[in-house]
Simulated scan of single mutants.
Amino acid sequence: MKVGIPKALLYHYYFPFWKTYFEELGFEVMVSASTNKAIMDLGVKASVPEICVPIKVYLGHVLSLAERGADWLFIPRFVSIQKGQFFCPKFMGLPDMVRHSFPHLASRLLIPSVESSTDDLATSVKQYQIMEEKLGVSRSDSRRALRKAEAVWLDFRRWSLKGYEVPEAMTMALNKTQGNIIEKETVDAGHQQEITLGVLGYVYNLYDSMISLDILSRLREMGVRVETFEMVPERALRQQLTGMPKTMFWTFSDKLFAAGYHFFEKPEIDGLIHVTAFGCGPDSMLGKLLELDSVKFQKPFMTVRIDEHSGENHLQTRIEAFVDMLRLKKQMNAQRGA
Rank of each mutant, 00 (worst) to 15 (best):
D293F: 01
A66S: 15
G337M: 09
M325N: 04
T177S: 05
R108D: 08
E183M: 07
F86I: 08
N175I: 01
T276Q: 14
E320P: 00
L65G: 10
S294D: 01
T171V: 02
K246T: 04
Y202K: 11
K329Y: 01
D307L: 03
L94N: 03
E234V: 12
E227N: 04
L200E: 05
A33N: 14
R144C: 03
Q178E: 15
E227W: 06
L63D: 06
E23M: 02
R157G: 01
E115C: 07
F102Q: 10
F86H: 10
V275F: 13
A321S: 12
K184Y: 11
Y58I: 02
S140P: 00
I130R: 09
T118R: 13
L73K: 08
L121I: 04
S142V: 04
Q127G: 03
D254G: 04
Y14T: 08
L216F: 12
L135F: 08
L219Y: 07
V323Q: 00
R139G: 05
E308C: 03
L213Q: 10
Y164G: 05
P6N: 13
L272C: 03
S124N: 07
P95A: 09
E221M: 01
D254R: 00
V48H: 10
H191I: 06
H309E: 14
S310I: 08
K134H: 00
G198R: 07
I319N: 02
E115D: 11
L109D: 11
V187I: 14
V323K: 00
I306Q: 15
K299S: 05
M92V: 15
E194I: 04
L200Y: 05
G337W: 06
Y11M: 00
T35A: 06
R77Y: 06
E320W: 00
N205H: 08
A236C: 05
A338C: 01
S142E: 03
D141T: 04
S310P: 13
T303V: 11
I319W: 02
G337E: 14
H314D: 13
I5K: 08
T123C: 02
P112S: 05
V98G: 07
K329A: 14
K126V: 09
K288G: 00
D293M: 05
V137Q: 07
V152E: 02
F263D: 09
D283R: 12
G163S: 01
K184Q: 13
F297R: 07
Y21G: 05
M244Y: 07
E132R: 11
A169W: 11
W159H: 15
S80G: 04
P103V: 10
L110I: 15
V199W: 15
V187Y: 13
T171A: 12
H262P: 06
F27H: 07
L292V: 10
D307E: 09
I111E: 14
S80K: 15
Q193M: 11
G287Q: 08
D324M: 07
I75H: 01
V323E: 03
S117I: 09
N175Q: 15
I195P: 10
N333I: 06
Q193T: 12
D307N: 14
L10F: 12
L290D: 09
I319D: 04
K266Q: 13
S294C: 03
S101H: 02
L213A: 01
E230L: 10
K184C: 02
R147V: 12
A151K: 12
L25T: 13
H309T: 14
S116H: 09
S113H: 07
P167T: 15
I55F: 15
